[in-house]
Design a protein around this nucleic acid. Sequence first.
DNA 1: TTTATAAGTGTGTTCGAGCACATTTTTATC
DNA 2: GATAAAAATGTGCTCGAACACACTTATAAA
Lengths: 348, 348
Amino acid sequence: MMKKYTIKDIAELAGVSKGTVDRVLHKRGKVSDSALKKVNKVLEEIEYKPNPIAKSLKNNKVYKVCILFPQSTQDSFWTPCISAVEEIENNYQAFGIAIEQHRYDSNSPSSFLDQANSIISTKPNALLMAPLFYKEAQEVKKNCLEKEIIISTFNNMIDKNSLSNYIGQDLFQSGRIAAKLLDSLTNSGHMLIVHIDEQVQNATHMQEKEKGFKKYFEEKKESHYKVSTISINKEQATNYAAHLQQYFNSNSDINGVFVTTSKTYIVAKFNKENYKKLKIVGYDLVEKNIDYLQQGSIDFLINQNPKKQAFQGLSNLAEHLLFGKEIPKAMLLPIDIINSENYKEYLE
Amino acid sequence: MMKKYTIKDIAELAGVSKGTVDRVLHKRGKVSDSALKKVNKVLEEIEYKPNPIAKSLKNNKVYKVCILFPQSTQDSFWTPCISAVEEIENNYQAFGIAIEQHRYDSNSPSSFLDQANSIISTKPNALLMAPLFYKEAQEVKKNCLEKEIIISTFNNMIDKNSLSNYIGQDLFQSGRIAAKLLDSLTNSGHMLIVHIDEQVQNATHMQEKEKGFKKYFEEKKESHYKVSTISINKEQATNYAAHLQQYFNSNSDINGVFVTTSKTYIVAKFNKENYKKLKIVGYDLVEKNIDYLQQGSIDFLINQNPKKQAFQGLSNLAEHLLFGKEIPKAMLLPIDIINSENYKEYLE
DNA sequence: TTTATAAGTGTGTTCGAGCACATTTTTATC
DNA sequence: GATAAAAATGTGCTCGAACACACTTATAAA
């Protein structure tokens, strides 16, 4: 347990005033060679860490941090993010962090862009967003950089190469996990990937998961596996059951299904009411999915943990603004496997 | 975004001095009725939250927090706790939290007691411990309360009734999860619970898991399930394989095994080299278990996440000491299901 | 009314970092 | 060597809470 040194301590040890030490520490010049040497010598001998509390008190600013993600009326997947915001507010409000929550229409790229630009025009210190639209997100990022607004993304990343403080999961690996789970549940060798999504924006998401899923079975050379894929879009949505029934009638060897979105309950409903032979692995702890998980119609859910993503993203920003902590370029969160017995502790 | 009020603001609004406001806030008396009313009125109208940063700066103490858990030479289960300590040190050292790490011999109750008492004699502000020994833990708790040392426990709780800041998992539920997993992997209907533990101290741990495991199959009334239990103790440890082989020879219908400790690799090794028909669910991301998980000899591991437990426990204490945050009486952490595809993100 | 005592109130300092400003020292120029 | 300009150095205040201490007012006893 070592002593905590202050600027005053250093000044005394070096035989100069705290003003001089301060100038050395901040490289503000106006320091003679001899003084510089004296201070640096002391600085080498001791380990000086500025007191972040004193720093923060002096600073005494209110930082505005905005978070932007889709409306949860359209997709309850996003609902848990609200409680992440609340928790962060409780934790950091007294430290001078003000969180502003903004939402956009997940069907409308222009809604996303409008919201983002309106946020940017208020010049917050930082913006955390879940960008569904690639092109628009690029533009938002550019605008933020221009206005010197720190930008982080969660759940959906803008681009793989120039990572910008991304918090989320490895989607490819996520697909592999689903594959491993279905592999342990079935033995038919024929799997079906179902993309159910009214929006096209999740395309990259679903593609990554599909790639990971297929890769797993490619690597498993011992036996011959077959993986098929279907997409159900909004037009067919009026009658999922008939659509699925038709498909399974002509592919009766399939008994493992991987649903790549939180709409897993749609296949589960079909299976429970009509088909009854499918093992199902899907995504996210939304209410309907949990119902079918409890009933046994869904075997496993993979938790994308939007709350933790938002929480972590906001934490990173707050700690950076308040105490100068570095924001990691990419944070890949664990991918939780959920069954009927362990979902509770992951909720809320 | 509301204004942040300071004591000075309140003083001005109430028409008194900041000293008077301070006395009202801290109920230190020496305030006239009229002044009290004036201040309280202002306090009702605005929402005053003292600035924790200023508070902490004024306080300017170094808090000593000790953590006590078993040596990891005996059981690598505890190794991750070390990095939890390191992370907490990085986060909180500058705020005046000094962590002291102490270890004890997991075979020796007296070692635990000695270590704990030697910690207590140095009068730290708080103690976080993983107590393997019930009786001794009670005594340590008593001693801490006497000396006004805040006490928290993780992984093993002292007693269910008078919970003392416990951080850990619901072990009963943990057994249920294992049951559900094995149920989804097998269909023989005969399961085996294996307790492998050189120490007796884990008894309650293992019992809770066993109860949960059995309860799951009791509730699943549709089919008749049989659950057997064996214990392998230190004396038999020289030849696990022969011992297991003998058991399975006379119980050849068993193909699902639930190992209640981190020694899961012992059954996995036997299965890989001799038996080859078991589905195995066990505990903890220790190196040997991960090897067998990758090879496919272990199907699922349940992650007790000692690192997160220690981290959370230390965080709670630090935030309490520094900023007066309340320490939750019990924190049940999520129970992670691990397979060969998602273990990586849970490591380190 | 005076004096003593208690009750109530306000002022000023501290914590450590950061920065403005005042002061001192050095260097350049006549 | 005197003077001005520049460079170097030190002093003092701020942030907000907390508390010691000084100060003022009210109350009681003489």
